[in-house]
Design a protein around this nucleic acid. Structure first.
Lengths: 258, 258
DNA sequence: TAAATGTTGTTATAGCAACAACAACAGGTG
DNA sequence: CACCTGTTGTTGTTGCTATAACAACATTTA
């Protein structure tokens, strides 16, 4: 009739992350394939050991995911998937909300007792994390954004964000190449790193990664160039920011002259 | 400084249902209490064994819930709770959506191959489950709702639902007592079960539970009267429905005469 | 009727994987 | 050396997974 193995292999995993056990998932899936079934039928349909079917059905009934008939032998039926997922996510969502309340309470308590922002330098691993953080930075920028970076850094999402905020904040970008439209309000300089002059030697390698300065307050430096092991540093530390603003100044001066 | 035990005892449980382990939760909570911390500080702050702190921090970093400083020794900081909960729920929500798609696919395949609705009688255990199912039934009613039931069954939620749909569908209710306002469009009969006439003897006990008929198609019978072990039967089976519509008719005839 | 057979639902228990907790050790620093 | 960091490996515990065995009951067969 219905082959038990023609469902996505990850499906059980998905359901597990929603709070079900492997057996609960298998039994529920099996019950969806029929109008109703006895424990033994469920055992055959799901592959779950017959003896394990009973406690699992109890658990599913506790979660209101199956209903039980009055007949003997008992017959079981699954509630529609939409309802089931709703019930599961509702429970998790409730937990999430309560957790959020408690956590923000703890967090606020600390934030209140805090004077200046940290003097630390943070790591961001991987190009994905870098892009994500960069997106956050761009979103929260208030006065100006200045970026020197390899084109690889500019994902579609980041280009979109830059376009959106180019009206409100000053945007200046130096990169080897740029695909797609460029807003008029955005200052874009295209420069190959290979044509850097002698006096800036050593800085060239860095163009493979990049520097991003936000509001003259926050700096993100991309130091790993290869796609696989890209690493970025981020800091709001005064000295750190001052150094890279100086570095940025060097580059941008030369770019403007050329 | 901050006592580690002044957070809700269920908080760890909530976070666990969001896919974190106990240690991950403890470490994250601890990190919220400070700007940043070394592994040893986290160990003291969270109570997690020092050696376990390192792998746990790795996991948290994989989930983008903490950032790592470049300094030696490394320092760790938590991302804001709102962001963290967002990330966790987003991942689960994605799984939920994918699971839903797969499950509905399986379900539809079965529904399509199915002729009539089931001829089975289903159990609902406990007053809470009964009320929930009753609420669903009322919500999906299209033409009429008829209920004989003890007042205990009518929770505030159910009264609200009845009020809301009293305009679109015919609503008729027989119950010993009713608190709160009664919509004009709703037919409400107040009858004590004790004054039932001789010819309906034996039906009296049932008033302690109740009968609910929806659209002349679905019937729910509440057979256990006590709060603790209330049990309801539900069926769309033709014979079952016919029997209880007849039973309902007996009662309602007598009620109208009185 | 009595014995044999099969099914349902329950209980006990062994196996297993992930997590939790601890001990030990190399490297670095004052 | 004494101390701290970061890593590794071992052990204990827990909860899910899996199998076996059993009592209760109905059905079949001699």
């Amino acid at each position: 009739m219905t082959r038990p193995s023609d469902n996505p292999p990850q499906l059980v995993g998905w359901l597990k992350s929603l709070g079900m056990t492997k057996y609960e998932a298998l039994v529920y899936i099996a019950l969806l394939k029929v109008t109703s079934a006895t424990a033994s039928e469920i055992h055959e349909l799901s592959g779950v050991p017959r003896a394990s079917v009973y406690p699992v059905l109890d658990q599913l009934r506790d979660k209101d995911l199956v209903s039980v008939s009055q007949s003997a032998p008992k017959r079981f039926a699954a509630i529609p998937p939409a309802d089931a997922i709703d019930k599961l996510t509702a429970r998790i969502g409730k937990n999430a909300q309560q957790a959020l309340e408690s956590l923000t309470l703890i967090h606020r308590e600390r934030i209140a007792a805090e004077e200046g922002s940290g003097e630390l330098i943070w790591n961001i691993y991987g190009i994905a994390g870098i892009r994500k953080r960069l997106a956050e930075l761009i979103t929260h920028a208030t006065t100006d954004i200045r970026i020197i970076a390899h084109s690889r850094v500019f994902s579609e999402e980041i280009k979109d964000l830059l376009k959106q905020c180019a009206d409100q904040v000053s945007v200046e970008i130096i990169t080897p190449s740029w695909e797609g439209p460029v807003p008029a309000t955005m200052n874009l300089y295209l420069k190959k790193p290979s044509v850097l002059p002698k006096e800036l030697e050593g800085c060239g390698d860095m163009l493979a990664g990049g520097v991003c300065i936000i509001d003259n307050k926050k700096v993100m430096v991309i130091v790993g160039s290869a796609e696989e092991d890209a690493v970025a540093l981020f800091s709001e530390s005064e000295g750190f920011v001052r150094f890279f603003m100086r570095y940025y100044g060097l580059i941008v001066d030369w770019v403007r002259k050329a």
